[in-house]
């Protein structure tokens, strides 16, 4: 899922400084699961904003809502009935959600309340880490299900490099060397011959190098 993290409250307060009546909109998708932008975070953020503004003698009216998803027009459409009554929307969705909201409602200022960080997993409650860089050409079948693009700091296709020490990466002793764990995994799977093959230069045109990406499926279009 997409992992996000709340922006510092003072950055948010600065963004909405001139507004007196806003919508704080959460999303029930990924950002709910990573506790960055769900209903609970909407409540906490709204309450914090109200307290800060009351303290500064500049009260603010907030309408709290959490949409099923902000990356689908059918759910964004639900805001149409009331959005004009407000001066701005503070969205706790990922970057995609905020942008789609902006595309749909062109006349209202929109502010992001979270930073969108990466595609990752919940390692355990309160700890998330990155697993995919959406390069657009998955090679996990050749690396024992461990992504060297994401988990190797240099995105090496034929690792490890000389910076691997005791199974850890040279940039941070907390970070596993991806190629060390690929090695261990392939050994367990009895697939060590995989290291005889040299990975070719990757075609990055399916990744960001090819510009903004788009998928069209004729079988699904209405």
């Amino acid at each position: 899922m997409i992992i996000g993290e709340g922006k510092p409250i003072n950055e948010i307060l600065e963004m909405i400084l001139k507004h007196k009546k806003i919508i704080v909109a959460g999303c029930r998708g990924c950002v709910t699961v990573c506790s960055a932008g769900g209903q609970k975070e909407v409540e906490i953020l709204s309450s914090t904003i109200r307290l800060a503004r009351e303290k500064d003698k500049a009260p603010i009216e907030i309408f709290e809502t959490t949409l099923e998803r902000q990356c689908d027009t059918e759910y964004l459409e639900q805001m149409r009935n009331y959005i004009d009554e407000y001066e701005a929307v503070l969205s706790l969705a990922c970057g995609a959600g905020v942008q789609f909201l902006a595309e749909m409602y062109k006349k209202i200022p929109l502010y992001p309340a979270i930073n969108t960080n990466f595609i990752g997993v919940t390692e355990k409650q309160g700890i998330w880490s990155e697993r995919c860089q959406s390069c657009g050409n998955c090679m996990l079948e050749r690396t024992g299900g461990i992504c060297p693009i994401t988990r190797c700091s240099k995105s090496l296709l034929n690792g490890p490099c000389g910076g691997s020490s005791d199974g850890k990466c040279e940039i941070d002793s907390e970070i596993d060397c991806a190629w060390q764990i690929i090695y261990e995994r392939l050994m367990e799977l009895d697939l060590m011959e995989r290291f005889e093959e040299v990975e070719d230069i990757k075609d990055w045109s399916t990744s960001r190098d090819g510009g903004p990406r788009r998928i069209e499926r004729e079988d699904l279009k209405l």
Binding site: K40, E43, I44, S47, R50, L51, E54
Partner: peptide, 11 residues
């Protein structure tokens, strides 16, 4: 006791 309960008491 959730975070929001604590904030609401102050609100």
């Amino acid at each position: 006791v959730d975070l929001i309960y604590l904030l609401k008491t102050f609100e």
